[in-house]
């Protein structure tokens, strides 16, 4: 690669990093606001106008808390846990195509850090190893509640990954590529996958809820039974990392849903624009869709009660996996029919 390309990618990565972290910080604020609106309250409004400095206040507070490691904990693994959670949550942003190419300083800049031809598998891979953050942290805490939580998290992740993977296969069948750029381009204009695969969308959405450990599937941090789950023993910024990682993965999951099912940066009437205007409008469209899904995630959290663990497993294994398998079969038959195999 040339030097300019290196610089371009480096700048892109830094921007992506900062934007993701900034958005995640403000999602914590947004979550509290949304919860307040749903419960006829106001929410945080003391730090700055409308409370918009609340994330800074929270972050500052977490930083200055005592950084505590329990006596009986496995020290290094205890530190490693939150780090892995944060790392895997941040990595998924690398393969997302944020918009069409942007022309700056006479150079075409692809708004995607890495257009690998296995983009969607990359996301699945990092989702699947995201559970290590919880497992290592939960086990290293040497606390039975944390351990329970780690075990719940891992079994939940593995169960829902299957249905999610099968649904992703159907989407890959629709577009004929594993690259997220190709998947997005196949949904040009309003040709979104959700109109062809509504069942797949619902299954994927439910799985995304489970994979990000959000209500109604937040059993790993089930307060009523497990105190705080895997972050029972954590404090200070290590705890902050866990909470933060949850919001980062909430954001990236919403982006992935937008890209896979709602056309990514495509929007109706995009053929009338070109160049930088198209790129910026596309970026705006993707963010609009993303924030809609973030809102839906929060909406669900403040509406539904938590599942029981056996119900969770029944839903995953006995409902979602058969549904997604049948859906995949039908998609395969229709695709084969369209290709003229019969």
């Amino acid at each position: 690669m040339e030097t300019s390309e290196w610089i371009e990618k480096f700048v892109l990565i830094v921007i992506l990093f900062l934007v993701t972290l900034g958005i995640a910080a403000y999602l914590t604020y947004f979550e509290r606001k949304v919860a307040a609106w749903f419960q006829d309250r106001i929410g945080p409004d003391r730090a700055g106008p409308f409370g918009i400095l609340q994330p800074l206040a929270d972050g500052g507070k977490l930083f200055f808390k005592e950084d505590f490691i329990p006596f009986a904990a496995e020290k290094w693994l205890f530190i490693l846990g939150p780090g892995i959670a944060m790392f895997t949550a941040l990595m998924t942003g690398a393969v997302i195509p944020w918009s069409t190419d942007l022309v700056l300083f006479g150079q075409e800049i692809a708004l995607q850090v890495a257009d690998v031809n296995i983009g969607i598998l990359f996301i699945m891979g990092f989702l699947s190893i995201g559970v290590y953050g919880i497992m290592i942290g939960g086990w290293a805490s040497n606390n039975k509640y944390s351990l329970f939580s780690a075990i719940r998290a891992s079994s939940q992740m593995i169960s829902y990954e299957l249905a999610m993977g099968i649904v992703v296969i159907t989407i890959v069948m629709m577009s004929g590529s594993l690259s997220l750029r190709d998947i997005t381009n196949a949904q040009h204009g309003m040709n979104w996958n959700v109109f062809y695969q509504p069942v797949a969308f619902i299954v994927f959405f439910v799985c995304a809820l489970a994979e990000t450990n959000r209500a109604p599937f937040d059993l790993p941090e089930c307060e009523s039974e497990l105190i705080g789950g895997y972050h029972t023993e954590y404090g200070s910024m290590k705890m902050g990392f866990y909470l933060f990682a949850e919001y980062v993965s909430l954001f990236t999951s919403s982006v992935v849903i937008a890209v896979l099912f709602f056309g990514g940066y495509n929007f109706p009437g995009m053929d009338y624009f070109e160049g930088n205007t198209l790129a910026l409008l596309g970026l705006g469209a993707l963010f609009l869709k993303t924030f809609f899904f973030v809102f839906v995630f929060m909406w669900i959290r403040w509406t539904l009660p938590r599942f029981r663990f056996d119900q969770l497993m029944h839903l995953g294994w006995k409902s979602l996996i058969p549904i997604s398998l049948i859906n995949m079969l039908i998609t395969g038959i229709v695709t084969a029919f369209n290709e003229g195999w019969f």
Binding site: W37, F38, Q39, D40, W299, I300, W302, T303, L304
Partner: peptide, 9 residues
């Protein structure tokens, strides 16, 4: 349920 919470907005 989501409709009910939505009305609370």
């Amino acid at each position: 349920g989501m409709w009910i919470t939505f009305k609370h907005l």
